[in-house]
Design a protein around this nucleic acid. Structure first.
Lengths: 288, 288
DNA sequence: GCAAAAGTGTTGAGAGTACACCCATGA
DNA sequence: TCATGGGTGTACTCTCAACACTTTTGC
């Protein structure tokens, strides 16, 4: 796609792309309770029925390649690196192009590069982000033209080394799912403890003791009661919580992560974010 | 420096550089015990006197910029991204150009980029690695032409946002210093528990209970007695250990890290590393 | 013996786990 | 009153920090 005459220059600058691993709970998971959550405090303790199908799975959207190499194969959503965007903004836009959802979490995962795929003659570097988005409605998972959602356990064969990258992201997610930080990003802004618990089990794929999970979450001090109750099945209504990050939570993961407040900033495309940790930049420097 | 006519193309590909934060213990730290460690098993339990000055600090080499912008200021060592090199190899070469030491640890830290420094008109992306090298001899810390070592607590003002990057790397190191993995990289291949302990204190800057530290290290199962003893002061000789990584240690940190075995590979410049995790690559992909 | 460093033992607090148990609710 | 999920109590283990203590060495 036209980067000038390649053979003209001995050391052609590598092309840089941004890719995103977008993760969400699949349609067979717990349903979000957003429908009845709104700002009016009309009934301090109202309850409402919703349905739930526990034990969902992680799904992710992939895009079909419309160019060589790997034409027709599935690949991670991505885009070019724009000069007037931060890396995060580029990742955000790649995410937007494949899903209508907004990421609740967006963090740089790793940068991949090297000579082993000089296929086109140009070296390639891909800066990969991973994102968590709220659970999509079932209809969102239906096939679109060139975008399709796949469950984590039934991925098609992927272009490039994207399978390796996805495994990388899944491993990262499972490492960090212990804390309410990430778990809450996969459900709606308000949730019951059982929903969180089901998310944790869906992500790890292993059973998690519910009682202890409850205590761990509550002990984190990052959950706050909304005052509402919700009835999932036909039984006793459950307390609804929301996630309240505490100030000093920046374990490198959250340092770079998109918080709810910065997400809005990111949406404005040409925003010039002043947050050091989000958009630190530097120049190249050679000693010779 | 000549990437063609910039105004010719609307979307100029960004330039990519590789920078390295190189960390080592300073000259005032414990001395390495390498001098008397060799392969001959002539004396199963010989001891030897060496000197030590505890409570060292972390030092790092910086290079003086010889170009605008920031001409004359200090900056992280770095280099351009070569098409025929993996990212790690590029980082390795940047490291070699500033120190004669070989990294015991080399891991990708973060990729920085964004519009806020479009100074030259070209957007810049820097893939930053951080490295731990064995303790250098005191003479290595003397000033060279354009390379100088600085203690972590007395850094000069730095070009670009390199100060932010260094803080990033230091934070990462302090997070992970709990485990023998990283601690052992900062000392020689063989060491006493007290040396490890002093390293831990130097890195964290806080006192660490020696007795508990000993137990934790030994409990890791990654330390192995060499059978030798060494006398640091004039007191009771201490057992010498070496680091033996266990097979299943890959907590993402070590997955990408340079192990002793791969370090040799890296040294051969044109080596085509086949390790997936070391040199995973992918192409750019746009849905439009 | 004394000082200094190597190395060990002991105790208690806190976190995490397994699992039994009670409570609220609709059928 | 029963089934089901919400929510609590409890006892056991494990880890880890604190710190007292013993051992080995040169002087």
């Amino acid at each position: 796609m036209g980067y000038g005459n390649v053979s003209e220059r001995r050391r052609q600058p590598p092309q840089v792309g941004v890719s995103v691993v977008i993760l969400a709970l699949g349609p067979s998971s717990v349903a979000p309770i957003e429908p009845h959550v709104n700002d009016n405090e009309e009934t301090g303790a109202d309850t409402e029925n919703i349905t739930a199908e526990p034990h969902g799975r992680l799904w992710m959207p992939l895009v079909r390649r419309i160019r060589e190499p790997y034409l027709g194969m599935w690949a991670l959503p991505g885009g070019e690196l724009r000069a007037d965007r931060s890396l995060e903004q580029c990742a955000y836009e790649a995410l937007e192009s494949t899903t209508d959802l907004h990421p609740r979490y967006l963090e740089q995962l790793h940068t991949f590069g090297g000579p082993s795929r000089s296929r086109g003659g140009l070296p390639m570097v891909s800066i990969v982000y991973w994102a968590l988005v709220g659970q999509a409605e079932t209809r969102d998972f239906a096939e679109a033209d060139n975008v399709k959602w796949f469950p984590e356990n039934a991925l098609p064969s992927l272009a490039f080394d994207h399978r390796t990258i996805i495994d990388h992201a899944l491993r990262r997610l499972r490492e960090r799912i212990e804390y309410p930080d990430l778990t809450t990003r996969l459900v709606g802004p308000e949730f019951t403890l059982r929903q969180l618990h089901d998310v944790a089990e869906a992500v790890t794929g292993a059973p998690v003791d519910l009682a202890n999970f409850r205590r761990r979450m509550l002990a984190s001090g990052q959950l706050e009661e909304t005052g509402q109750k919700v009835r999932i099945g036909r039984q006793r209504p459950a307390t609804v919580y929301r996630y309240v990050p505490d100030a000093d939570s920046h374990s490198d993961a959250t340092a770079d992560a998109v918080t709810d407040s910065t997400a809005a900033l990111l949406r404005s495309a040409v925003a010039h974010d002043s947050d050091d940790s989000l958009d630190a930049v530097l120049g190249p420097l050679t000693t010779d």
